[in-house]
Each structure stands twice: as structure tokens, then as C-alpha cells.
């Protein structure tokens, strides 16, 4: 996996893979917190997870693309777009943890 073209291919799905993992994690934490009644700790845990999940997404979205030749140049430019989209999706989709009612 040390070839830049393969790494660019991995980058293409990296952001959204992280986004999916964060989605599953937040959904699970929401359900567990209600089932086991985490009370006042519930929302801070969710918000903490939300912010933590944005860090790797932001890192991917700000990465410089490989531009050492084809196909890695085109692939990693597409990957950059996809990873920025993943960051945007992460910010917007998980934003409700800051205000929406957790267990009703």
C-alpha cells in the first residue's frame, strides 16, 4: 500500500468511512445513554464525540493531494472533494447533538 496511486484510492473513501464510523458511534451512544439513563452526562459525551470525530475529518479535508502523475493526481483531487464533503456532512449531520432532545 505504499504506492501513491493506491493511497489516493484509499483516500477517496477514507473521509466517508470515518464519517460512517462516527455516525454509528453517535447513534449507539445516543441509544445506550437513553437505555442506561446517563442523565446529565449524556449530552456532554455526545458533544465530545462529535468534536473528536471532526478532527480526523478536518485533517483529511485539509490534506494536500498527491500530484506526482496519473492516476494519483486526478484520484487525490477527487478524494479531496470527497473528504471535504465528508467533513461538511460530519459538521451538519451530527450538529443536532448540541440541541435536539436526546431521549424523547
Amino acid at each position: 500500500m505504499s504506492r501513491p496511486d493506491i493511497r489516493a484510492l484509499v483516500l477517496l473513501i477514507a473521509g466517508f468511512t470515518l464519517w460512517s464510523a462516527a455516525f454509528v458511534l453517535l447513534y449507539a451512544l445516543q441509544a445506550l445513554g437513553c437505555a442506561y439513563d446517563w442523565g446529565a452526562a449524556h449530552r456532554p459525551i455526545l458533544i465530545g464525540t462529535y468534536l473528536a470525530s471532526l478532527l480526523p475529518l478536518a485533517w483529511l479535508a485539509l490534506r494536500r493531494p498527491y500530484e506526482t502523475g496519473e492516476p494519483q493526481t486526478s484520484l487525490s483531487r477527487a478524494a479531496l472533494w470527497a473528504n471535504r464533503a465528508a467533513l461538511g456532512a460530519g459538521i451538519l449531520v451530527f450538529l443536532p447533538v448540541t440541541f435536539a432532545t436526546t431521549c424523547l
Binding site: 451538519l92 443536532p96 440541541f99 435536539a100 432532545t101 424523547l104
Partner: peptide, 18 residues
């Protein structure tokens, strides 16, 4: 989409049986 979803979520909050 951001405005619409935001407004719908706020409305949804108001409709919940608090």
C-alpha cells in the same frame, strides 16, 4: 437545505411531548 432542516428540527422539538 440547512435552513429547511434546521427549521424542521426546531418545529419537531416543539411538537415533542415534553
Amino acid at each position: 437545505l440547512v435552513l429547511l432542516t434546521g427549521a424542521a428540527l426546531v418545529l419537531g422539538e416543539q411538537l415533542l411531548p415534553h
